[in-house]
Design a protein around this nucleic acid. Sequence first.
DNA 1: GAGACAAATGTAAACGTTTACATATCAGTT
DNA 2: AACTGATATGTAAACGTTTACATTTGTCTC
Lengths: 334, 334
Amino acid sequence: MARNATIKHVAREAGVSVATVSRVMNHSVLVADGTRQAVLDVASRLGYRPHGAARSLITNRTSTLGVLLPDLYGEFFSEVIRGIDQAARREGYHVIVSSSHSDHHELETMLRSMWGRVDGLILMIPDIRVATIASQLPAGFPVVLVNCAGDTNGHDAINLANYEGAYAMVQHLITQGHRRIAIIRGADWNYDASERLRGYRAALRDAALPAEPELEAAGDFSEGSGYEAAAGLARLRSRPTAIFAFNDAMAVGALSALREAKLRVPEDVAVAGFDDIPMARYVEPPLSSVHVDISALGARAATLLLGAIQHPDGREIRREIVPTALVVRRSCGS
Amino acid sequence: MARNATIKHVAREAGVSVATVSRVMNHSVLVADGTRQAVLDVASRLGYRPHGAARSLITNRTSTLGVLLPDLYGEFFSEVIRGIDQAARREGYHVIVSSSHSDHHELETMLRSMWGRVDGLILMIPDIRVATIASQLPAGFPVVLVNCAGDTNGHDAINLANYEGAYAMVQHLITQGHRRIAIIRGADWNYDASERLRGYRAALRDAALPAEPELEAAGDFSEGSGYEAAAGLARLRSRPTAIFAFNDAMAVGALSALREAKLRVPEDVAVAGFDDIPMARYVEPPLSSVHVDISALGARAATLLLGAIQHPDGREIRREIVPTALVVRRSCGS
DNA sequence: GAGACAAATGTAAACGTTTACATATCAGTT
DNA sequence: AACTGATATGTAAACGTTTACATTTGTCTC
């Protein structure tokens, strides 16, 4: 592969010094118009492109944000990325994405290899067993934590109103007359899931309803686990009248299971989800959910991070909560 | 922000030269065990991380793939990214994504600013007005074109079997007895859309059915445009008995429009889409579609690119076609 | 004990930029 | 004609690595 033109080639060809070429490329005002034009001509003739790595090395800026997500599957994460990208590109930043699969070691090597390639990081680590990694980050390096458990260790953080959203949904179901409200949980170590669980239990308690272990089915945020969980719930002697899945993917799986069990939704069993992914309004029946403006979550994280990058000194730590909103559709009998 | 430990700090602290530290970090065998351990201890105590940009500058490798997509919206693109990321991480590569919004100028600055930050590019440019940009890429730079029109200009290319997929779907509808088959097109300048159009017309021709302009409704691959187009088709004096939308998002929009027009699917009008996004099987009725293994498309593109990066010399240009498969569900009356 | 060879480590150049500082040129002022 | 100040340009160091080559040390062979 023919090595490409460098600033030196352009300088020699244009009969100026590398400093002048650099000034032209960076739109410095200290260049005579004639010189500028000559340099630009040579640059375009030679197909010169400034080398990003070299530039980063000396300026200590990469114009790139690193994003680490637990997974890249499904509409939730794609919406997050979209939001981040929008906010980043507006400021001329690139986005480098990666999924960690919530594995501690892999996450660590990921972070290592991003060092010197990004100006800051957005970390979405709902797995509370892994979230401790945040403490190993170099001090003073711009980081925004999204949906991470508890201690932010001096970093900015954004969280969803998981507790409030779940509480509101359960409260709504109670208002509709439901007394046996089952849930499909997420993994025990998932922070979002555990917060939603808190919200569910609190809502029951506040309505003086008993918490019954058999109504708390296990799940892992995958559609398949939702299917399994709902199939199990449908077989209970004392069947719940409502199922609140802790995300939409599981709710969709639950709808399939209930259909196969010949149970009508919402007449026999009401169903609700969480996230309000785009698909939610198109399933049959349309799915009630706890709406989250997912791309706004991403955009907000990016904006926070860009702020931290551009004003490194003396900032106070920001903690933000992104609100949720109840969206009632036919699946819970509106 | 306190500048972080560099290789020099580690070297001084460990009482060795920078070369030795470098060798340790790169797992070179030419280091005595004692020295290696001492260096590693110091490195971890100082929190040393090799600087990516510096490393890239000297090695001329970034371990990063650049991906340019027309958009980041919807399940199609998120699946592509997932496939790319999977294949890339398997080889220890990062992925830097960006959406171009199909704007020629923006695309160009994107490409410029990625120079020196990526080892190769995956370009998905269905807009045939913009695809000419491929010719401006530095010769010999690894590039894989995905869904780009015609001339690949010496680059590897992957395309969907758009023509064949559309042909098969229309043929299927004809077999089902449909004679007035409408379509919802994509933008005129969209390559995928124009190929699907070719397939549609060929299938009609081969079945000796007339091509009627009023059955070719305009669309732009968005759900809203599908809604509008279907609403228009439903009002035709001589209504089509089947509507084939050129992607699933528009098909979903069409379903909404038909429901509002009080037309039953598939009894009054059959509906089909293209892409078979995950949502397709969950809408009501489940949507027939032309299945594309989207993440495999992304994975394949990444694999091809990695091949070109790792074996730069004497490779012949690869052109691959990713096959499609008919998926018949209830929306077209199976 | 000299020579040869291997193993371990060090020295320094290179990668392609940016930028502080130095220098050159020139118009205007005295 | 010397000085001033502004404007344009050049020189060279720096960024943090890798790596070709040189050097040192130790072991083995004769």
